[in-house]
Design a protein around this nucleic acid. Structure first.
Length: 914
RNA sequence: GGGCGCAUAACUCAGCGGUAGAGUGCCACCUUCACACGGUGGAAGUCGUAGGUUCGAAUCCUGCUGCGCCCA
C-alpha cells in the first residue's frame, strides 16, 4: 500500500532525513576505478570555499547548477565524480585567529609562529568548513570520501613540488620590486587582491627650487608625503615649457634632516610625464609608486624607501619620523605653505587601491618578493583556449580571458603571513645563497655546504595551491590511475569574479605541469589533454529582488539557509535554476520561490491523487505491478487519446530538457519540466484520466488498469525527469511510489528519461491541441453567459471535418461541464466562439450582455483585420514571395485563408447581435 | 582612458530575423470528493530612442540617452 501523505507538502519533514541518507549511504562516492572506463567520466571540482566562509546565495547558485548537472550525468549513466574541498585562505584565516588573540590582548608575535599555526589548526577544527556542512544539508551529491583541504599533507607536497620545479626551470625568481603592500596585515598582496575605488582627493602644486638658484619648477602630486623619497622630477621631453630645465638639478624641499643640507635631485625627461596633467612636471618616487619605479629603472635613479611596514614615515632625525602617512601629509603641506612653496591645491578625484581582505589603503612598497615569470605559462594557457581545448560558456568570457592573459604581469606569490604553505627556500648564513628543496629541511647549503641555513619566512599565495587542485586532488605529482581517469576534468562551474584569480591560474599551471606527464597509454601528452578542464561555465551574480548587489553594509544579504527553511530546498533550487539564464544576473525574488513551493505542493498532491486511486483500484481487485511499470510504458494505438498524448508530451519534454541541459540552459530546462508537470500532466492529463479510473463492479477493468498503468509510469518518469532539479521531493515520492521498495537505493541512481522516437506522436498532439482549444472556448463562453460553475449546459458545435466526437465527447463533457454536445450543420445566434477548426455555442437561457459581447467581438475583429492586412501586404510583396523560405510563405497563406473565414464569422456574429 | 554588457506587461526575467512569452502580481467567478501552496476565465506591452540593412527587425548594424561590470 502506498504511504499516506499529508495533505500539504512540508519540506521540513523530509529534507533532513534524505540529506542524511544520501551522505550515510555513501551513494555518490566514486572509488578509483580498476581500469580506464570506455566512456569519458563526468568529473567536476567544487570551487573550494574559503575555510572561514559561510554559505551565501552565490554558493547556492553555483552548487545548484553543479548538482543539477552532476545528478543529470549520473542518471544518464556516466561515471560521475563531484569532488569537494576547502581552501585554507591565508589572510582571511589568519585574520580570524588574530582577532581571537586580540580578544586575549595578544598579538601573533607574542605567541610565536609555531604556536600560532597550532591555534589556526584548532580554529579550523572548531569553526572551519561551515559551508561543507551546509552543502550536506542542501543535498549536494558530492563524493565526501574525497574531501580535501588545501593544507593537507598530499596537497602540500604538490605545492612544494610545483614551486621547486618552477624554480629549477627558471620560472620563479626573487627580486626587489614595488608591490601592493597591506599596512594592516603587513604583507604583500597581488594585483588581483587590490580593488580600486574612486575617492575625492587633492592635487597639490609644489614649487621645487633649482639648485643653482636660477629659478624653480612646479610639480603636481596627489601624495605630497612621499616627496621625502623623491629622487628626480620628470618632464615630457616634448614639453616646450621645460626645455630649458632638462638635466638641471633641484633642491628637494624639507629633505634636510636635523638641519642638514637638502638633497639635490635631477630633472629627467620621460614620456610618462603627461603635459596635460597638472603642471606637466611630476615628482619621481621610485620606492613608493609603481610608475615612478619604472621611471627610476629607466633613468637609473636611486630607490629611497621612507616608510616602514606600517606605512609610517621612517626617516630618523627628521621631524616627520614616526608619523602615519596621512598625518605626515598634513604636516608636510603645512610646512610647505609656511615656506611659500605650496602654489596651489585643487580638488581631484582619484582611484585608490584597497586591500580586498583588510580594507586598508594599499601602499606601494619596495620589497623583496618571490615572483613567477608568467609569460611562458600564459602562452600555453592562451593557446589552449585559442585551439579550442577549453570552451567557455557564455563565449564572451573567452574574450575577457584573452584580454587579461595577453597583458599579464609577473605573479607575486610570496606573502608575509604565517598561515599557508611556507616557501621551500633556505637562506645560507655563511654565503648568502638560496637553497630550494623538496625536503622538509635540507641539511646544508647547496652552494657552500654550510649547515647554518634558515627557511624563508614567507608563505605562498593561497591561489598558488588552489591553482594546482585539478592535478593535485588526483595525486599529482605522482602518476596515479585517478589522474589517468579523471584528468582533465569535464567542467568548471564558477563565477566571473575568480576568472583571473583561479580559472586562469589553473589553466596556466595545469597546462604547464601536465604536459610533462604521459598519458595512460604512455603516449606523450599534448595541450588538448593537459588542460585542467574541457569546459568552463560562468554564471552571473545573485542580486536582491531590486537588482541591487547584496552586501553586508547595505544589509540586503539574503541568507540561503533562511530561505530554504522557509520554502524548502527544492523550491529555492528551482528558483535559481529557473532564473539561471547564461550571462544574466539573477534578481532573487522570494515571490518566485513562493511560486515554486506551490509547484512542489502541486506535485505532492498529484502523488496523493495517484496513490488514492491505487487504493481504490486495489479494492476493485486491480493492481499494477511495479515490475511491469517500465515495460508497460508506451500505450498501444488503441489507447485513449490522453494516454497517447501524455506519453508523447513526456518524450518531447525529455528530448528538450536533455538538450537544454547539455548546453547549460538551466532556465529553459527548468521551465520545460515545470510546464510539463503542471500544465500537461496536472491540468489536462490528470483531469481526463479521472474518467478512466472506474474500478466499480460493472466497469471496464482492463481499460481502467491500462489507464492506471500509464498514469503510474508517466508519473514515475516525470519524477525522474524532475529529480536533478528537486532531489528531495522526488526522492520521497519515488520511494513512496515503490512502497518503500524501489529498484535502486535512490532516484538519483535511476535512469534519466531519454526520448524514444516511437513514442513521439505529432498527430495526437495536434488532435489534443484542438480538443483543448474547444474546451477552453466552451469554458470562456460559459463565463460570459455567467453559467454557474456547477451547472452542465448543452452545447452546439460545428466542425470542419467529422461530427462524431467519439472518445472526445466524454472529455469535453467532463472538462467543460457540458450536458449534451449537438453536432449541427449551421450555427446561428449569439454567444458563438469560432476558430478555424470549429464553431461552438453554449446554449443557455440567459441572454448575453449585448454591449460586452459587441465589445469583445469588435476587438477580436480589429485584431483579425490587422493581422489580415499584414498577411495580405506580405503576400502581395514579390520580394517576400521570392526570398522568404517556403514554409513561412505557406504558413502565411494558410493563416490568411483562416482569417478570411474568421473575419466573416465574426462579422456575422456582430450582425446577429443587432 | 580602454574593454564588455544591459534597457521587452505593474515587478522579475525569457525570446535574439518570420503572427509578442513565462512566473509573480492584478480583476472576476468557484470552498467541484489530489491540491485555496488550488481551479476557471480575463485585463495588461507603439519590445529605451533616432536612423540604417532586409521581402520582413524586439531580434542584425550605427548614433544617442540611461544604467551596470571589468581593467588601467
Amino acid at each position: 500500500m502506498p504511504q499516506d501523505l499529508e495533505k500539504a507538502y512540508d519540506p521540513g519533514a523530509i529534507e533532513d532525513r534524505w540529506a542524511a541518507y544520501w551522505v550515510n549511504e555513501r551513494l555518490f562516492e566514486v572509488p578509483s576505478p580498476e581500469s580506464v572506463p570506455e566512456r569519458d567520466p563526468f568529473t567536476i571540482l567544487l570551487p573550494p570555499p574559503n575555510v572561514t566562509g559561510r554559505l551565501h546565495m552565490g554558493h547556492m547558485l553555483n552548487q545548484t547548477e553543479m548538482d543539477i548537472l552532476t545528478r543529470w550525468h549520473r542518471m544518464c549513466g556516466d561515471t560521475t565524480l563531484w569532488l569537494p574541498g576547502t581552501d585554507h585562505a591565508g589572510i582571511a584565516t589568519q585574520m580570524m585567529v588574530e582577532r581571537q588573540l586580540a580578544g586575549e590582548g595578544k598579538k601573533r608575535q607574542d605567541v610565536g609562529r609555531e604556536a600560532f599555526i597550532e591555534r589556526v589548526w584548532q580554529w579550523k577544527e572548531h569553526y572551519g568548513g561551515a559551508i561543507l556542512g551546509q552543502m550536506k544539508r542542501l543535498g549536494a551529491s558530492v563524493d565526501w570520501s574525497r574531501e580535501y583541504f588545501t593544507m593537507d599533507e598530499n596537497l602540500s607536497v604538490a605545492v612544494r613540488e610545483a614551486f621547486v620545479r618552477l624554480y629549477e626551470q627558471g620560472l620563479i625568481y626573487r627580486g626587489k620590486y614595488i608591490v601592493n603592500w597591506d599596512p594592516i596585515q603587513q604583507t604583500a598582496v597581488s594585483d588581483l587582491e587590490v580593488t580600486h575605488e574612486e575617492r575625492a582627493g587633492k592635487l597639490y602644486h609644489i614649487r621645487y627650487p633649482l639648485a643653482d638658484g636660477s629659478g624653480s619648477i612646479v610639480i603636481a602630486t596627489t601624495r605630497p608625503e612621499t616627496m621625502l623619497g623623491d629622487t628626480a622630477v620628470a618632464v615630457n621631453p616634448d614639453d616646450a615649457r621645460y626645455l630649458a630645465f632638462h638635466g638641471k638639478l633641484l633642491r628637494l624641499p624639507l629633505s634636510g634632516v636635523n638641519g642638514g643640507a637638502e638633497r639635490e635631485i635631477p630633472i629627467v625627461t620621460d614620456s610618462w610625464a603627461n603635459p596635460e596633467f597638472g603642471t606637466g612636471a611630476v615628482k619621481v618616487t621610485p620606492a613608493h609608486d609603481p610608475n615612478d619605479f619604472a621611471i627610476g629603472v629607466r633613468h637609473n635613479l636611486p630607490q629611497l624607501s621612507i616608510m616602514d611596514e606600517a606605512a609610517r614615515i621612517e626617516l630618523p632625525g627628521s621631524p616627520y619620523h614616526g608619523l602615519d602617512r596621512y598625518a605626515a601629509r598634513e604636516k608636510i603641506v603645512e610646512d610647505l605653505r609656511a615656506l611659500d612653496l605650496l602654489v596651489d591645491v585643487k580638488d581631484h578625484a582619484m582611484a585608490i587601491g584597497l586591500s580586498q581582505r583588510s580594507g586598508a589603503v594599499v601602499e606601494p612598497r619596495l620589497s623583496t618578493q618571490w615572483f613567477v615569470k608568467i609569460q611562458p605559462l600564459a602562452d600555453k594557457a592562451i593557446a589552449a583556449v585559442e585551439q579550442g581545448h577549453i570552451k567557455f560558456t557564455p563565449e564572451q568570457y573567452a574574450k575577457t580571458y584573452f584580454e587579461w592573459m595577453r597583458n599579464i604581469h609577473d605573479w607575486c606569490i610570496s606573502r608575509q603571513l604565517w598561515w599557508g604553505h611556507r616557501i621551500p627556500a633556505w637562506h645560507c648564513e655563511a654565503c648568502g645563497q638560496i637553497t630550494v628543496s623538496r625536503a622538509d629541511k635540507p641539511a646544508s647549503c647547496a652552494e657552500c655546504g654550510s649547515a647554518a641555513i634558515h627557511q624563508d619566512t614567507d608563505v605562498l599565495d593561497t591561489w598558488f595551491s588552489s591553482g594546482l587542485l585539478p592535478c593535485s586532488v588526483f595525486g599529482w605529482p605522482k602518476h596515479t590511475r585517478d589522474l589517468d581517469i579523471f584528468y582533465p576534468t569535464s567542467l568548471l562551474v564558477t563565477g566571473f569574479d575568480i576568472l583571473f584569480f583561479w580559472v586562469a591560474r589553473m589553466i596556466m599551471l595545469g597546462c604547464h605541469f601536465m604536459l610533462e606527464m604521459p598519458m595512460a597509454n604512455g603516449d606523450k601528452r599534448t595541450l588538448k589533454d593537459a588542460v585542467p578542464f574541457r569546459e568552463v561555465y560562468i554564471h552571473a551574480l545573485v542580486r536582491d529582488a531590486d537588482r541591487q548587489k547584496m552586501s553586508k553594509t547595505k544589509g540586503n544579504v539574503i541568507d540561503p539557509i533562511e530561505i530554504v527553511e522557509k520554502y524548502g530546498t527544492d523550491a529555492v533550487r528551482f528558483t535559481l535554476a529557473a532564473m539561471a539564464s547564461p550571462g544574466t544576473d539573477i534578481a532573487f525574488s522570494e515571490a518566485r520561490t513562493e511560486g515554486y513551493r506551490a509547484f512542489a505542493n502541486k506535485i505532492w498532491n498529484a502523488a496523493r491523487f495517484i496513490f488514492m486511486n491505487e487504493e481504490r483500484a486495489a479494492l476493485g481487485g486491480v493492481e499494477v505491478s511495479r515490475n511491469t511499470l517500465i515495460d508497460s510504458f508506451g500505450p498501444d494505438e488503441n489507447a485513449p487519446i490522453e494516454a497517447r498524448w501524455i506519453v508523447s508530451r513526456l518524450n518531447h519534454t525529455a528530448a528538450d530538457v536533455n538538450e537544454a541541459l547539455s548546453e547549460y540552459r538551466f532556465h529553459e530546462a527548468a521551465n520545460l519540466v515545470y510546464q510539463f508537470f503542471w500544465g500537461d500532466f496536472c491540468d489536462w492529463y490528470l483531469e481526463i484520466v479521472k474518467l478512466r479510473l472506474d474500478f466499480t463492479e460493472n466497469a471496464d477493468k482492463r481499460a481502467a488498469k491500462a489507464a492506471l498503468t500509464t498514469l503510474l509510469a508517466t508519473f514515475e518518469a516525470a519524477l525522474r525527469m524532475l529529480s536533478p532539479f528537486m532531489p528531495f521531493i522526488t526522492e520521497e515520492l519515488w520511494h513512496a511510489l515503490y512502497n518503500g521498495n524501489p529498484p535502486a537505493k535512490s532516484i538519483a541512481l535511476s535512469r534519466y528519461p531519454q526520448p524514444f522516437d516511437e513514442a513521439l506522436d505529432l498527430a495526437v498532439e495536434s488532435e489534443m491541441a484542438t480538443l483543448q482549444d474547444l474546451i477552453v472556448n466552451i469554458r470562456a463562453a460559459r463565463k460570459e453567459l455567467e453559467v454557474p460553475e456547477r451547472e452542465s449546459v448543452p452545447v452546439r458545435v460545428r466542425t470542419t471535418h467529422d461530427n462524431s466526437f467519439g472518445d472526445a465527447l466524454l472529455i469535453i463533457q467532463r472538462l467543460a461541464r457540458v450536458s449534451t454536445l449537438d453536432p449541427v450543420e449551421n450555427i446561428e445566434g449569439s454567444g458563438i466562439r469560432s476558430t478555424p477548426a470549429f464553431d461552438v455555442q453554449v446554449v443557455y437561457e440567459r441572454t448575453v450582455d449585448v454591449a460586452a459581447e459587441r465589445e469583445r467581438l469588435t476587438k477580436e475583429l480589429a485584431q483579425f483585420e490587422k493581422e489580415q492586412a499584414n498577411a495580405q501586404r506580405q503576400l502581395a510583396n514579390e520580394g517576400f514571395l521570392a526570398k522568404a523560405p517556403a514554409h513561412i510563405v505557406d504558413g502565411i497563406r494558410k493563416r490568411a485563408a483562416e482569417l478570411v473565414i474568421l473575419i466573416e464569422k465574426t462579422r456575422r456574429s456582430l450582425d446577429q447581435l443587432g
